[in-house]
Design a protein around this nucleic acid. Sequence first.
DNA 1: TTGACTGCAAATGTTTTGCATGCCG
DNA 2: CGGCATGCAAAACATTTGCAGTCAA
Lengths: 160, 160
Amino acid sequence: MQGHDHDHDEIKDKDEVLARYMAQHGLKSTRQRSLIIDTFFAVGGHLSVEELWNKVRAQDAKVSVATVYRTMKLLNECGLAHARNFGDGQTRYEAAAGRDHHDHLICTRCGTIVEFENDRIETLQDAVARKHGFTVTSHKMELYGLCRDCQRGLPVASEA
Amino acid sequence: MQGHDHDHDEIKDKDEVLARYMAQHGLKSTRQRSLIIDTFFAVGGHLSVEELWNKVRAQDAKVSVATVYRTMKLLNECGLAHARNFGDGQTRYEAAAGRDHHDHLICTRCGTIVEFENDRIETLQDAVARKHGFTVTSHKMELYGLCRDCQRGLPVASEA
DNA sequence: TTGACTGCAAATGTTTTGCATGCCG
DNA sequence: CGGCATGCAAAACATTTGCAGTCAA
């Protein structure tokens, strides 16, 4: 739906990071891992492990959830995916390769997630942290509310 | 650190909110609920259900975890407690009655949690939301990093 | 060949729930 | 009394892990 036809650099970058990480850690590139990782980056968005598993199983019915969990944990460790936690009980992952930091607007009615970034907020965050003697290494910020459509009571389109 | 010795108004406010909510929902005031709620507000901080359960059991050994879960869910629903999720697998609750909104600085080494509020950040958040057509009803922001002591490598004092 | 990877199922840890009993109102 | 609340244990989830077989390097 969105025009992301120019992420070849990022994909290359991602592959490099991944290859380097796997080499350094003695990890192997397997059919399942490739499938999971490719699917994850191809789908985009904020996937729960189960959602990702479903996409993956559509292509290879024998991949187990455990492998998806293990693979996403790896991606997270090597910095290519970030684990997020938006209130429903599940951990969601989002692609991180070559992307700037960003935060989220979450519609509490239809579940839409919009990403944004705002340098002025980041600057203020740093200032606050400094005032309290903290050195900040990461942060997360989530704004919950109603998106434009839900404010007007439009029917919820459910998820894909 | 913080001078919050004047929360008597807030406590009264809390009881009112609670009483009204319980009346409206046909809820009963029981020994267990009172004990759990009083303990929760007395201890303060960001308690996991298990931590709270331990405090409660010290006073009445027969209270079950289930009741603590049920009670905290109630407090959360009536707005007197907020559920938070700081990365470890557990949901933590913090008192919300009569308190201004605030965010958190979390030390990733010793676990210290510092609360802060910053109106300019809130203002910017609203602006961002508006730009994306959202009406924000709540938000959370967490800054992760090292607190002053941990930056200097001081020994971790563990939790209480 | 070898050791990492996988699938499966069992194990974990957290939170929820069904049910019979208990207690507030 | 009647119905919500409680305790207990089982159930429900999300996630992890032990193990034996499989596969990449």
